[in-house]
């Protein structure tokens, strides 16, 4: 019994410490965004890693999600004779919810784990200590570029996901389910607002921050050798995904 309470207490302390550390890292990383010199090359490299290299997987996910959405909503809407609403359904779901969230989850799986692994390896092989002894702030050198990359690339990936999702939905709706193409596009344009897209894009800013911050934190504070690196990668994905879904709920309730 006592053991249980002790364990709960330890967990609570750990949770608070982790949160505190994460915010400290965030504060430092954000502070360094504004402090020259800027290591543009580093930022560009991370942008390429987070953004360009996630493109394929994001396009794949986006288009298939759009196609499935079209098919599913067609089945449901057919019963009301409202097949014309397939377009808006696909576009609104993609823009407001699925675009940002799916993109964030895919990027977490691909880039978040890789980031944690890279930083974890640097930690256990003392590369981070080496940076420090060379009078280079490791947060500025390693974490700031990653967070900047996350903040800037996730919105763009989200826009691409939205777009291919709508294209996927259009393909299924018009060519397979025989919805009139003019009606499909017309209804979509009628029902979707610029705000819908912007809400999704705004969300993705936060997701970009969460993904890179969590992965950086997990990697940066890795302990325990190769096993620790593996744990960091796993944690980066699990904690990242959970935080994305939780914050998605919070952001949705604030924005709508």
């Amino acid at each position: 019994m006592r053991e249980l309470f002790e364990r709960l207490g330890r967990m609570a302390v750990t949770a608070v410490t982790v949160t505190g550390n994460m915010f400290l890292i965030l504060a430092q990383a954000v502070y360094f965004i504004f402090i020259p010199p800027y290591k543009l090359r580093n930022i560009v490299k991370q942008m390429e890693f987070v953004g360009v290299k996630s493109l394929f997987v994001v396009i794949l996910t986006g288009s298939f999600t759009g196609m499935v959405l079209a098919m599913q909503s067609f089945n449901a809407l057919k019963r009301f004779g409202a097949e014309s609403l397939v377009g808006p359904t696909v576009a609104l779901s993609m823009a407001r919810e699925l675009g940002p969230v799916l993109t964030a989850l895919m990027v977490t799986g691909r880039a978040g784990s890789a980031m944690a692994t890279e930083l974890g390896t640097m930690r256990v092989t003392e590369q981070i200590d080496a940076l420090y002894t060379m009078a280079i702030n490791p947060v500025k050198y390693l974490i700031t570029p990653r967070i900047v990359a996350g903040l800037s690339m996730l919105p763009i990936l989200t826009v691409i996901t939205d777009f291919v999702g709508v294209i996927g939905g259009y393909f299924v709706g018009v060519t397979l389910l025989n919805i009139n193409p003019g009606v499909y596009i017309g209804r979509t344009v009628d029902f979707v607002n610029v705000d819908d897209i912007m809400y999704g894009v705004t969300k993705s800013f936060f997701f970009g921050l969460i993904i890179t911050l969590v992965a950086s934190y997990q990697g940066f504070y890795t302990t325990g050798g190769a096993e620790g690196v593996g744990r960091a990668a796993t944690n980066a994905v699990v904690v990242g995904c959970v935080l994305i879904l939780v914050s998605d709920y919070i952001l949705t309730s604030i924005m709508f």
């Binding site: 560009v44 690339m153 939205d162 709508v166 344009v189 979707v192 897209i197």
Partner: peptide, 26 residues
């Protein structure tokens, strides 16, 4: 180069954003 790739990527993203905004916003 990495810079060029990121540049193209950002460019495509922005074009899509503007295109979609224009379409849905009239």
């Amino acid at each position: 180069s990495a810079e060029a790739k990121v540049g193209i990527f950002v460019f495509i993203g922005l074009i899509l954003l503007v295109y979609m905004s224009l379409r849905v916003g009239g």
